[in-house]
Design a protein around this nucleic acid. Structure first.
Length: 127
RNA sequence: UGAGUCGGCCAGACGGUCGCGUCAGGACCUCGGUCCUGCCGAGGAAAGUCCGGGCUCCUCAGGGCACGGUGGUGGCUAACAGCCACCCGGAGCGAUCCGCGGGACAGUGCCACAGAGAGUAGACAGCCUCCGAGCCUCGGCUCGGCGGUGAUGGUGAAAGGGUGGUGUAAGAGACCACCAGCAGCCCUGGUGACAGGGCUGGCUCGGUAAACCCCACUGGGAGCAAGCCCGAGCAGCGUGUGUCUGACGGCGGCCCGCCGGAGCACGCGGGUAGGGCGCUGGAGGUGGCCAGCAAUGGUCACCCGAGAUGGAUGACCGUCCACGACAGAACCCGGCUUACCGGCCGACUCAUCCG
RNA sequence: UGGGGUAUGGUGUAAUUGGCAACACAAGUGAUUCUGGUUCACUCGUUCUAGGUUCGAGUCCUGGUACCCCAG
């Protein structure tokens, strides 16, 4: 579980990230990462939300996928610039992966999405 | 030793680092929150939502009808379609298991096809007496007719007791014996379902009620996103005050002064956004004793073991083993059903061997 | 989370009170045609699944599975 200030809390927040005009998206067969700079003055900490639909599996599998993504995201949170909201969506194939495979996939997609939404500050995980 | 039946229990363990949620204590605080410490933190099915109950709101004088639910008996329970014990029927050598297990003499409906006849039975073939005609090897045979018959054949899921005899033209519960079954009465045992036995009777009226129905018992509706409380803003109502005799607001706090200026203040009820409560101490667990065959109940002691709201149990490691199945609380509880890698314990049955 | 509904050839639908699972389109095979189309004939079913009631179940009863809809 992330701290409350780092979570998206309402359905309006989620649709603001996933359907916003200025938002960026990077996806694969495993995950889809949405990003959007909702606060241009960048005073708010970054916020993250997760979407795991019933197509992924039962409640146990969905919770496991969500917890793994949450734990992976918690370590990467300091690298996300302030004022940016993220939504990480899991595809059905993500249920079969372990944490390390999910981590590399998340790094790749996160870099793509953040580079599109904040080109001035490139995401530097690979360096 | 092998095969099997039933019941109960467990649901990876230990350790390290980093994190999460409720609660309690403390610190900081811009009263939004942040940080530190500590306790606790998913299941036997949390699942399916198939029954039952608590709780909440709505409806409701009382009674009846309609529409459902249940269905051997006795008990347990808050209640149940559940559980326990027993009865009956069936399966098994047995331990044991399975059964929507009331009523077809209250009434109605249906029983396709086949078959003569399918429900107050029925004559297609056949069998038998008698009458008539024909043939004739004079034993009889064939055809037609008035009747008798329910034994035989064939049909069907099912054909109106079974076996043996008496009887007859041929036959038939027409009559007799035994058996099966039904009804009535009585005796014994049992709270009861029922069981055992005796006497009498008519020979003996299919199946289907998970068809309508009858009988007995029983059921109001919706559901915690139920519902209750607080409540911005906008609008409404009331009272007071004010419109050049200037309310109120602005100019850094106050006074004066200057500027803008028609509303302003208080109260009221309903209630949107939003927030809080409901929300977990309960038909609660663990252990002992007592009553009971048991389900269960009583009593004593100890314990507090989730309560979130985008929704908490995770991540990375180490060691061990049988290498980890099915699966995640969202108001709570009692059941049922379904899913499931395996493991442990107890009781019992059968077969074989040994003593 | 709570409430409600549906399931029949590949697809869309039928089937009186329980008595032979029917129709259209599609697909395949064959015939007709020089070839294709049209036309004709034929083929194609665990009635979602497992039990039960019944002589007999798509239909009646019970459990399960999948999908869809509604409230928020």
């Amino acid at each position: 579980m992330l701290a409350a200030r780092n979570r998206l809390r309402t359905g309006a927040d989620f649709s603001a990230v996933t359907r916003a005009r200025g938002g960026a998206r990077a996806g694969s067969r495993l995950l889809v990462v949405h990003a959007n700079q909702t606060d241009s003055r960048a005073v708010r900490p970054p916020r993250v939300g997760f979407v795991v639909s019933k197509a992924v599996g039962g409640a146990v599998i969905r919770n496991r996928v969500k917890r793994r993504l949450r734990a992976l995201m918690a370590t990467r949170l300091p690298l996300v610039p302030a004022g940016v909201d993220l939504v990480v969506r899991a595809q059905p194939a993500a249920a079969d992966l372990d944490s390390s495979a999910l981590g590399t996939e998340l790094d790749r997609l996160l870099g793509q999405a953040l580079a599109r939404v904040v080109p001035a500050q490139p995401f530097g995980v690979g360096e």
